[in-house]
């Protein structure tokens, strides 16, 4: 019988080197294409925001052309509904991308501008088209960088939104990005801690609020014909310890 112990065995070194080089090339290509797709997702959302802004400009133009007449109210409502749906969908996509690790502060700032514009436009339209609004609004102020309860607050709002659908519109603003429009809104609604909720543009509630609390607080509110979005009685109601104060401006 042959004695084979100690007999040297072959090492296919040239194959290993070739395989390594090819793997590096393929790996790099994969990373490059993947990164390009991530950038493409962000670009796609920027285009979505741009389209939504165009739509909003059209609605504003209609609003201005209608002067004080309420004849176009059905058109306003329909177009606003489409705009809000579009805006919400963009917001979910941005949040989903953030959860996956893709963060773009400039994209979010563009989105906040769109949200704020859509919110105030809908306020004005509802003022002209007097009657009971068939939905409630929540302005949600949070800080992704420094807020212990913000994740929980976001999930609670999402739960309520899933149950109420179109009867609730949530406008979310990240106060930690240095967005001017968010800073102005915080001043306007006296937001001093995170998280904070502004219900139907009238009352500000600081601290974490539960799903059941939010569900009771948001009820379709009648908008009076001469209601002004500038008059506010902000109620700072610190419900929970641990809320994060917003930095002063």
């Amino acid at each position: 019988m042959v004695n084979l112990e100690g007999k040297p065995r072959e090492i296919s070194l040239s194959l290993y080197i070739a395989a390594f080089i090819i793997s590096v090339v393929l790996f790099s290509a994969g990373i490059y294409v993947g990164k390009a797709m991530e950038i493409g997702n962000v670009t796609g959302l920027e285009e979505g925001i741009s389209l939504a802004n165009s739509k909003m400009n059209s609605i504003e133009m209609l609003y201005l052309m209608g002067e004080d007449s309420a004849a176009l109210c059905p058109v306003y409502r329909s177009e606003l509904h489409n705009l809000d749906t579009q805006t919400e969908n963009l917001g979910y996509q941005i949040s989903y991308l953030e959860d996956k690790g893709t963060r773009d502060p400039e994209l979010k700032k563009q989105y906040f501008m769109l949200e704020a514009s859509a919110y105030f436009l809908s306020q004005k339209v509802m003022t002209r088209c007097s009657g009971t609004a068939n939905y409630s609004t929540v302005l949600y102020f949070y800080n992704n960088r420094n807020c212990a309860n913000c994740t929980a607050q976001g999930l609670a709002l999402l739960d309520v939104k899933k149950k109420m659908g179109d009867k609730l519109r949530v406008y979310s603003f990240d106060g930690g990005l240095g967005s001017e429009i968010v800073d102005v809104l915080r001043l306007k609604y006296n937001v001093t801690v995170y998280p904070s909720l502004v219900i139907n543009g009238q009352s500000t509630y600081a601290g974490l609020r539960s799903t059941s609390w939010i569900s009771e607080a948001v009820t379709p509110a009648p908008i009076a014909a001469n209601a002004s979005s500038d008059s506010l009685n902000a109620t700072a109601d610190s419900a929970n310890a641990g809320e994060t104060p917003a930095p002063p401006n």
Partner: peptide, 25 residues
């Protein structure tokens, strides 16, 4: 992500990145 349900089918494309490309290769 809790937003996956809200995003729907678009989550497939939004979730594509380097790892997914490497798995595809």
């Amino acid at each position: 992500s809790p937003y996956e349900e809200m995003v729907g089918w678009q989550s497939f494309f939004l979730g594509l990145g380097p790892t997914q490309m490497l798995v595809l290769i």
